[in-house]
Design a protein around this nucleic acid. Structure first.
Length: 298
DNA sequence: AATTCGTGGTT
DNA sequence: TAACCAAGAAT
């Protein structure tokens, strides 16, 4: 029997039991691989856009071995418009690594997960917690925001994660591993549904009475300015346009078809294409055509 | 440690 | 409408 270490635990856990979304990667029949796929897709991409793609992947590649047997370009193609397509490449590489290093089973240990391509501190902790009920501090943008408000009393967390934040998160992890896993998913869900960045639904918050930000009178954010993400006209936009052509094409695409999507700046276009090739997202073929990456040669 | 890396919905 | 924001990772 574990004693709650924080008054936040009970209300947040009760709220989660009542209000949690019914997401397929939380279903009883989920697999660790399905959890890992969901976490990769959810890095910087909203749940609503991940759902249909995740279902497609779950049906097509139900195991790491199934994905590992495909050409990496198929993962990039099936990634669709989720954004940051390097994630698709890394997830494919992670599947290969799981087959080679772990006999095709997604590992449960944090360090083994963290060593997989595309798996950073957050994702390793999330998979270890959600798929294996491991005891870890799972700190994403939602958790950072909930902590900033409920614990620290600030409207927004600092632009980058601090050591102090991690200490707060670790101090909040319940002693019992099963409870820790429930807490991890619950506090994250609270940040996603109630303690949102722009217009928090404080009237629906289970810890409103305990929230340091509420008790301080909801002071406005006074930290360093948070930079936005420019997109129009950037290399990222050009890369997206180029890769979009290759994704939609059945086979190799002539150079001219790529040139057509960004005619106004050949220099930038070349830089973007070179970058895609350097990242392994695009393969130059003999004869001047381009394609999504095929099976690695050995 | 600061940048780079997509895409689209919301306000 | 332009800005903001979304379960980050790698370098």
């Amino acid at each position: 029997m574990s004693v709650p270490a924080s008054p936040l635990h009970a209300p947040v856990l009760a709220w989660y039991d009542r209000c949690a979304r019914d997401l397929p990667w939380r279903a009883p029949d989920r697999t660790p691989w399905g959890v890992l796929v969901s976490e990769a897709m959810l890095q910087q991409t909203p749940v609503a856009r991940v759902l249909p793609v995740w279902r497609e992947w779950a049906a097509r590649w139900p195991t790491p071995a199934a994905l590992a047997a495909e050409a990496p370009g198929e993962a990039v193609r099936a990634w669709g418009r989720l954004g940051y397509p390097r994630r698709a490449l890394r997830l494919h590489a992670a599947a290969v690594a799981v087959v080679e290093r772990h006999g095709g089973e997604v590992p449960a240990a944090y360090d083994d997960l963290r060593a997989l391509p595309g798996v950073g501190a957050y994702t390793a902790a999330a998979v270890a917690s959600f798929a294996f009920s491991g005891r870890h501090a799972v700190v994403d943008t939602n958790v950072r925001r909930v902590q900033a408000r409920a614990v620290t009393g600030a409207e927004h967390p600092a632009p980058a994660q601090t050591a102090a934040e991690l200490r707060v998160a670790e101090a909040l992890v319940p002693d019992d591993a099963g409870q820790a896993a429930r807490w991890a998913v619950a506090v994250m869900e609270l940040g996603a549904l109630v303690c949102t960045a722009r217009a928090p639904r404080c009237a629906d918050c289970p810890v409103r009475a305990l929230c340091a930000w509420q008790l301080a009178g909801r002071p406005a954010y006074d930290g360093p300015p948070r930079r936005g993400q420019a997109y129009a006209g950037t290399d990222r936009q050009v890369r997206g346009l180029l890769l979009g052509v290759l994704r939609e094409a059945e086979g190799p695409v002539p150079r001219a078809a790529l040139d057509a999507v960004w005619p106004r700046d050949p220099l930038q276009r070349a830089r973007a294409l070179d970058g895609l090739v350097a990242d392994g997202l695009v393969e130059p073929l003999e004869g001047g055509a381009y394609a999504l990456p095929g099976a690695p040669r050995r």
